[in-house]
Design a protein around this nucleic acid. Sequence first.
DNA 1: GTAGGGTTAG
Length: 630
Amino acid sequence: MIVAVVAAASPPISPPYLNSNPGSFGDRKQLLFKLQKCKSIQHAAPIHAHIIKNGNPNDPFILFELIRICSRCCSIEYASKIFRQTPDPNVFLYTAFIEVLVSSGAYFDGIRTYFQMIKYFILPDNYIIPLVLKACGSALDLKSGEQIHCQVMKLGLSSDRFLRVKLMELYGKCGEFNDAKKVFDEMPQRDVVASTVMISCYLDHGLVSKAMDEFRLVSTKDNVCWTAVIDGLVRNGEMNYALELFREMQMAGVKPNEVTVVCVLSACAQLGALELGKWVHSYVEKYNIQVNHIVGSALVNMYSRCGDIDEAASLFEDLKARDVTTYNSMIVGYALNGKSMEAIKIFQRMKHEGVKPTSITFSGVLNACSHGGLVDIGFDIFGSMETEYGIERRIEHYGCMVDLLGRVGRLQEAYDFIQKGNIAPDNIIWGSLLSACRIHKNFELGERVAKILLEYGAADSGTYILLSNVYASRGKFKEAAQVRAKLREEGVQKEPGCSSIEVNNEIHEFLLGDIRHPKREAIYSKLKELNHMLESEDYAPATDVISQDIEEHEKRWALSIHSERLAICYGLISTKPCTTIRVVKNLRVCNDCHSVIKLISKITRRKVVVRDRNRFHHFENGVCSCGDYW
DNA sequence: GTAGGGTTAG
């Protein structure tokens, strides 16, 4: 299909050179030159036909150029055909052919082809070896890689810089840092490329401080080196550190490229740092950084994960380059922000425009159905996944369906859906049903589900808390206490709640009852003022979730110092009236905070946007976009 | 006469 489209779109080929005399040297040179310029095999086919008819079809130089064209347009088939028909391929042809295989991800075929060449006694050189080492690294084929390393020594090629970089990459990818470091240390002069590979090796395996030590030793850091470190820090969850380095990079006068921008946007998205994200966006425009589909997707993702879904949507519309990931970013963004119908519309548009959805598309769109309580649409889409799109339904998709049924209170159906046995349920699926049971106050089923979760032995801290809350809600305080005791006994760590807010391009983090902030006095006096105002509102604190044996007013206080409330108070005292307050929390918002934030939005006339572990809550004038189900 | 390095989004 694609081939046909490309062929149709290609300009008609009317090459005057085809009429020239193929016998003379000049014509052959001209043909080679033309082949070097070809971007696709469609352009080259008539030239190839001409050569077969009039010239020497086994000319190794011509064949070499033909296979290189296949590399440019990822045409394994055409390359294989040429390669198979070549009587005695030389090392150049092997290199070009393996390049086609490796660039298409056929690593093992590339490695096999290389060893076949060795079998035919063709001597490898310092071009083909790095290529095959790259394949070994990508395929995590350490054994073949080591074998090739031995050949490198025997052939006396180990001083080649390119080759060393690929050896390091191989060892790094396979987790053999010592070997990677050994190759690195044996280099007479360290250059920035080798250092970047070494740093990436460490970062790929979470060795942040080793990577940073190495990074600080690099004397001339270029933008790729900076970017590799920033990206690695983001992948290791060190967002603030990554942003700090991004600032440092600019101070050092190194200009970020589009890859840098994508990594920094990812950090902003994860932190919910909208102001900084906007600044990066303006930077992209100011310095003419190309907004390709990757940068476009990263921008859409950043805006939607920072809760500015309108900006994400308008940017999405303006993008010149869109691919499946861009669509996925938009769908997931809408789902996160509770805009279910919009997510479905994008999904339909995707279908209409012939963009093939992926597994992530369906996670997004089914999630949207779940947040919107759109049961019928959700089941239609779920049903179409395999039949219409040929995409395997995975556990996360089943999870969305359980969520969907649970949300609308069809708990027994959700239970039966799990029990049908189409997929082995995990603790996330049971946990979501348990949560639904709690919200719809179906304690009988809730207890049954909770017991399944405990039998599993895979219950995390959240499950224990949920189970304890189910018991507490049924008045079974003894059981609730037992579950909490078991939680402590088994040493299941409860991840501490942490909320952050961005003010003046800085991220401020708060833990439960945090008193570390320099403005703590003003924050707590705002908190007390709000608590006082809440008393005159119709608000009853959900103190029943507090399991400690303390006085009622102490329980109220324990609830009011939840991290998100501290972050909101800081937002209230440090931003202008009417500014939207945006908070990111690592856990789910508790019931009580949810009720309180609704009231805060009403009392203070501020929009409050909270991103919790699962989704966004847009609070405005006493109402939340989630419709009180999350 | 043929060729080559490190960093990108959900």
